[in-house]
Design a protein around this nucleic acid. Sequence first.
DNA 1: TTGTAGGCGTTATCAA
DNA 2: TTGATAACGCCTACAA
Lengths: 337, 337
Amino acid sequence: MNKRITLADLAEKTGLNVSTVSRALSRPNRVSTETRQLVQKVATELGYAVNIVARNLSRGTSDTILVLAPSFSGQAISPVFTQILLGVCEEATSLGLRVMLQQCLDQTLSANDVIQSLRAGVADSALIVAAQNWMPSLDREPDEESLPVVSIMKDLTAEGLTSVTTQEADGFVAIVDHLLRRGHKRFAYIAGPKEIKHEEIRYRAVCDRLTAHGYTDNLVRLEGGQFDMPSGVRAAERFLELPERPSAVICCSDALALGFLHVVQGRGLRVPDDVAVTGYDGMDYTGFTTPALTTVAQPTVEIGRVAVQALADLKCGRITRPRLVSLSPTFIPRQSS
Amino acid sequence: MNKRITLADLAEKTGLNVSTVSRALSRPNRVSTETRQLVQKVATELGYAVNIVARNLSRGTSDTILVLAPSFSGQAISPVFTQILLGVCEEATSLGLRVMLQQCLDQTLSANDVIQSLRAGVADSALIVAAQNWMPSLDREPDEESLPVVSIMKDLTAEGLTSVTTQEADGFVAIVDHLLRRGHKRFAYIAGPKEIKHEEIRYRAVCDRLTAHGYTDNLVRLEGGQFDMPSGVRAAERFLELPERPSAVICCSDALALGFLHVVQGRGLRVPDDVAVTGYDGMDYTGFTTPALTTVAQPTVEIGRVAVQALADLKCGRITRPRLVSLSPTFIPRQSS
DNA sequence: TTGTAGGCGTTATCAA
DNA sequence: TTGATAACGCCTACAA
């Protein structure tokens, strides 16, 4: 790679001063028409590219969003996060921001860690995805300026973070109503990790809705363990051992549902005739299982975009107090229920 | 966020010179024991964090890898890329490097664009994922220093880029051999995008292997269009119209296979009895379809890790000429064939 | 409109 | 071992 072209080179070549060249490039209207044109011509001739690092140091910014996404020990990122990431990247690009990705092994994130990263100057705002255990900063005054950090998929407004989530309860209410309309009376709920907040919200939504319709003792809860397919398999095995099998199974993720389907179909049960199954997330494969899986699609890409916008709003002071943005999911009834 | 703590602050507090403080922190052994301890103590007391931007400017590096990954207009990133990304992040972290993610809309990447990014200083090396159309730099001498760029999933050694790929042909040879052993004699191949190089390699591998076994006119090629599930659906519809249906269908991606399965099962065909189906990629859902899908798993995470290592080797001069690293995929026979 | 000069926070060179 | 000083490349008052 040839030597870097700097503003000094352009200055020399044009006979102008470095500051003039700088202005011509970054504030074109603060300079005469001819200097501007001259500078731009020479700049493209020489293939000039600003040194972002130098600019950032000078300006004290970095125009970079740090994205912290959990990856469960060796496991892939959840496809949900991948989609969110896409939305984040799209919106960031359209705002002229860069995205720095950092996978973190567990879901415990300390505010101090994030603050440390921001202080280091590699990013000037952060997005934390599905941070189950957010540890607020120890040494902060209560009414200190709020951090340029937005939480995705997890409501952390109580901890002072603007958050973007899905209205999960709505999704599960839609599922329950749908199953009730179909005439089901006995239900199973296949749970994900117990310690996770989503889990609580989802389970509670299902319980409450059933109770509201007068079905109080009609719900069996089966522990999946994780949100993944092997967990669905394990849950299915326990399901098959139940003395009286529920006729409808509500899985709290598509992956669980797929694992469940795999097992019960393998044992000869017909879906939905013998047992109806529903998922949650809206993974693309749900439309192509046999039978196609009823599910609730999360507005993943939009979540990513909205989160970046919230970050921008925070930075320019348009958001001052922690705010919760909760997007609606879409119920997708299909043949499995 | 409180004012940033700088080296100057530490210098003032300790009564030492800025340069000494800097050394105490970055080259602890080039400084007396007591200064080192003093500086470290004060640094933690004040919560000092180096300003990476300033350091980078001074050192002329950025310790950042730019990852360019294609996202097909609004579509999510392929799960394959997601896994690769995980490997990249893991390896980068363990080498103390940061990862900057940039999604690009089409698969045409110009060397000049990448060079531009590198010149800007935001990254000092780049990983390009599945770059179907790499346009080499126009203004480079042939024996110029090679770019710190590694291509993933696509062999660009001819263009001067060290590349990390999968031995795709091997994967498809394994599939063909497996199907032949199972006694199949007539085959269909469901293709992805025609213009893509992978496609050629895969199709050729299948053709050659069949020919080598004396099956010359026994292969029907059906165009999927894309690598995704809806394309598998379309291909299946064309498959069903064939006058004489092949007994084995080789899909060049798992997504195509899933879409295909969905349709033919919906029409009452039994898999694998009426038609055997195979996929490619090793997506996690393949183990949980009914029947489970025979496929070939790509060593995705490893690809990511190896690519980052190659980048490191390039930078420290351990790789001087473009090199191809091709990893072996794993054949996974299951119930669908 | 343009030029001068200082600063952003670190690192590296060269003396002391 | 430490300290002064000059980069690194760009931006921005302020002055001309």
